[in-house]
Write a protein that binds this DNA or RNA. Structure first.
Lengths: 204, 204
DNA sequence: CAACACACATACAGTCTGTATGTATTTTCG
DNA sequence: CGAAAATACATACAGACTGTATGTGTGTTG
């Protein structure tokens, strides 16, 4: 009986330890929220001590940030997979939005990204993450393409992106709370069409 | 030199004490956020002890809820003052929205109502307050009137209210961060017009 | 005016965060 | 290869905070 979990390189040890801590923290942050989750509980769930945590992360907030960044990138990946095909810009926007709502049904994502995230990291901090590696990045690109193709009227891109993104966020929260996704998709589509170039052709 | 702050009725003592605690807590919650503000600091600012706090409020969260409810009602009052005149329903909606953005420039309101509020009280708890005594109440009524007047297409009222409300919230955050209010009002107006009844007459 | 309820202060127990310090393992380099 | 340095992690500690229990004085009530 040999213990094969010996002789590991430092890089590998760090990687797996960080992953373990992030995974354990994610579970608890999702279940109980950031404020109600203590670091002793996190390290117990990960099977290590607080020394490991504070060696790899500056503080509890830095660990939370790592959890949020990972989750945010996963949501973005799902969206880009769903809206990558070469479809018309308006339909790509709608498809991306639908994919976002689907991705946000993964349990805990709304709490991490829409409730605790802004409060713990600040709205600016959360926006920075969202705009760089999160869903807002895809949305912004889609909107820019739609404006370039004259499908949408020219408007301040930042403003449009923020407001539409925020509406999608709230829709994700409502859907999680049991609302009918169709009702919200209808309104979101109306929002998009409200910015359409003025030749007045809404769908059937 | 008589001390005239003697002989006070119990009801009056409670009222002023609650008001003092709420005012002191508001200042600190706004400056440092809910999590970073301790109850010792709050009672010191109010010139009393923690005994008073825990006599009038079940816990720190209950005090925060009282702060949020007061602030929420003040915002709603400003909105209803601004959109009460008998103007056309669409213009009343726009005016109410503008009043909301104005009211939210009062320092600290975005943090209380849009960042810490949802995280501390939960989205459902915050929605309950907002829908009953906050800005969402006015918005919902305005939208219902617009649909009844066939100015807006019939859509799920809850969905429309939530999504538009959320977009206004984000606009308030952006304006506070230094963005141009006009850019955001333009997009918000486009959202409203996207739900307009299909006779295709947007303003100039 | 006596009994009671209320408003508030003080004291205490438990828990959490961040840091300082100690130890074992890995990496670097003469 | 072996000593020195760096890294990974554990343990111990100080300070702070929350909520509760308890004590005291002031208004209220029968």
């Amino acid at each position: 009986m040999q213990q094969e979990t010996k002789r590991r390189s430092n890089r590998e040890r760090s990687q797996t330890m960080r992953a373990q801590l992030i995974a354990a923290a994610r579970r608890l942050f999702v279940d109980k929220g950031y404020a109600e989750t203590g670091t002793p509980e996190i390290v117990a769930a990960a099977g290590v001590t607080r020394g490991a945590l504070y060696h790899h992360f500056a503080d509890k907030q830095a660990l939370f940030r790592a959890v949020v960044e990972l989750e945010s990138s996963r949501v973005a990946a799902e969206i880009e997979t769903a809206s990558s095909g070469d479809m018309p810009v308006r339909e790509a926007l709608i498809a991306g939005g639908r994919a976002f709502l689907g991705a946000m049904r993964e349990p805990g994502r709304t709490r991490l990204l829409l409730l605790d995230g802004p409060a713990v990291l600040g709205r600016a901090g959360m926006d920075a993450i969202d705009a760089e590696i999160g869903a807002m990045r895809s949305l912004r690109e889609g909107l820019a393409a739609a404006m370039a193709a004259r499908v949408l009227r020219p408007m301040q891109l930042d403003a449009v992106t923020l407001l539409l993104s925020s509406a999608y966020d709230r829709a994700a929260l409502a859907v999680e709370a049991g609302a009918e996704p169709g009702d919200f998709m209808a309104v979101l589509t109306a929002f998009v069409d409200g910015m359409a170039a003025p030749d007045c052709d809404r769908g059937p």
